[in-house]
Design a protein around this nucleic acid. Structure first.
Lengths: 226, 226
DNA sequence: ATCGGAACGGAATCGCCGTTCCGATTCACC
DNA sequence: GGTGAATCGGAACGGCGATTCCGTTCCGAT
C-alpha cells in the first residue's frame, strides 16, 4: 500500500526541481503526530506509537530524527518559536489600537498561551543538553517579544517593580500544571488562577509593594541547560 | 488477606516479643530512601537505586512493598498525612493566639507546605488507581484541616467568594513546579509567587470580585482516581 | 521496459528495569 | 554448639521500548 502520505506541507511554493522529495517531507506529519502523542500520554510514550500515529514506520521517524531526544527537542523549539510569534503578535496589537481595559499585554499573552500552547516551553530540569543553536535563536526572539510586553504593562502601571521577562517564563511554568480534566475544563481552571495572579500583580503595583528581584533572564534560561 | 492497612510504623514502646522486629526498621529506611531517590530523580528512578540508597537488596524492598506502584503510593499517603497534620497545626495556631497581620491561615499553610513538603500530594493524572482506603482516610483528614483554614480566612475577609478547599489543592499544584535550582533558591522563587497569589486573592476579596466557582472537593479528588 | 538508488516499513537487536527466585546468613531457642 | 525458620542480598528472568538493519517499493531517468 502506498503510504497515506499527506503532501500537505507548509513548504513555500517550490514548483522547481524537488519532486516527490517534497512530498516525502511528511516530516511535518511526524512532528504533528509526536506533538499529539506526547502531549496526550506524556514524553514517556513510545516511538512506535508516534510512528503509528503518523502513519509511517519507525524507520522513517528515525531517518528524520536520529534519536527520541532529537524529536522532543524539535517539538520544544517549535513551541518556543510559536510563543515568540504570539508575544510579537500581542505586542503589535497593543501598539496599534490603544489598550483598553483588558488584562494588559502580559495577561493577554499568558491567557492565549494557556489556551493555545502546543507544548511546554521548558523541559523538565535535568533534561537539557548544551542548548542547541536553533533553540537559542528562538529563545532570543521570545525574549524580545516579552521585553515589549513587559514594557507596555510597566508603563501602564500594571506590574510591580522587580517584575522581569524571566518572571513571565516562571509564570508560564506555574500556570499550566497537568490536570485530570478535559482540555476545556483544565484551561478554565488555569485561566481562573491566571486571573488571581494578574490581580495580585496589579495590587502589588498599586501599593508599590514591589517583588524581590527575580532571576535574570540569562540565569533563568541558562539554568535549564548543562 | 486481612487488611491492606499496614501498621508498619515507628510505633516504639514495644518491649514485647519482636526481636527481629527491629530489622523491620529497614522499612522506614526504605521509605526514606525512596523519598530521597524519587524526589531527586523523579519517579522514573529504578527500584535498584532505591534499594542501594537504603543499603538493602532489592529483595528486601519487594518483601515490604510488593510493587513499585505500592511503594510510590505509600510515599503519597505519607505526604498527604503530613499535609493534613500541617493543616491542623496551622489551624490550631490560628485558633489560639489571635491572628496578627500575617499571610492568613491558608497563606501560612501554603508557605510551610512549599518549604517543607516531602512529596507531591497528587500524582500525575492517569496514574491513579481506584483510591485505596488509607489514602481516602488521609485525604478526608486533609480536607477537614483545609476546611478550618479556609473558614478562618473567609471570616477575616482574606478570600474572595467562591474560593474553596479544592482551590487550596489547586494552588498547591500551581505553586511548586520543578525548577532547575537548588532547593533553597527554588523555594524562594515559589514563595515569591505565593506572595503574588495571596495578594491577588486579597484584592479580589476586597473588591468583592469573587471567582467563578471552582471544582467541588469530591470532583477534584475523584478526578485523580479511576 | 529496465535500472539505480532513495525512502519505506517493520522485524531483529540490545539494554534497562520491574519482579521473581534461591542459596547464604542470622537469630532464637534448644 | 546445633538446628530450623525467617531474612537477606543479589543473580536470573521476561517484557518493553529505543535504535539498527535489511529486504521491498517507488520514482525518475535511460
Amino acid at each position: 500500500m502506498p503510504s497515506p502520505a499527506d503532501p500537505a506541507d507548509q513548504r513555500v511554493d517550490r514548483p522547481l526541481p524537488g519532486r516527490k522529495r517534497e512530498a516525502r517531507a511528511n516530516d511535518s506529519a511526524v512532528l504533528a503526530a509526536a506533538r499529539e502523542v506526547f502531549s496526550a500520554q506524556g514524553h514517556g510514550a513510545s516511538m512506535a506509537d508516534v510512528a503509528r500515529h503518523a502513519g509511517v514506520g519507525v524507520g522513517s521517524v528515525y531517518r528524520r530524527y536520529p534519536t527520541k531526544e532529537a524529536l522532543v527537542e524539535a517539538l520544544h523549539v517549535q513551541a518556543v518559536r510559536e510563543a515568540a510569534r504570539l508575544a510579537a503578535e500581542v505586542a503589535d496589537e497593543h501598539g496599534s489600537h490603544a489598550s483598553t481595559a483588558d488584562d494588559g499585554a502580559v495577561g493577554t499573552f499568558l491567557a492565549r498561551q494557556i489556551t493555545g500552547a502546543t507544548g511546554p516551553l521548558l523541559r523538565p530540569p535535568g533534561t537539557g543538553g548544551p542548548l542547541p543553536a536553533d533553540l537559542a535563536a528562538a529563545t532570543r526572539d521570545l525574549r524580545v517579544g516579552l521585553e515589549r510586553l513587559v514594557a507596555y504593562d510597566r508603563a501602564a502601571g500594571l506590574l510591580p517593580a522587580g517584575f522581569t521577562t524571566a518572571d513571565v517564563m516562571q509564570l508560564l511554568l506555574h500556570l499550566r500544571p497537568a490536570l485530570p480534566f478535559p482540555r476545556a475544563e483544565a484551561d478554565a481552571l488555569h485561566l481562573r488562577y491566571l486571573g488571581v495572579v494578574l490581580a495580585g500583580l496589579r495590587a502589588r503595583a498599586r501599593d508599590d509593594a514591589g517583588l524581590g528581584d527575580g532571576p535574570r533572564w540569562d540565569d533563568w534560561v541558562g539554568a535549564w541547560h548543562d
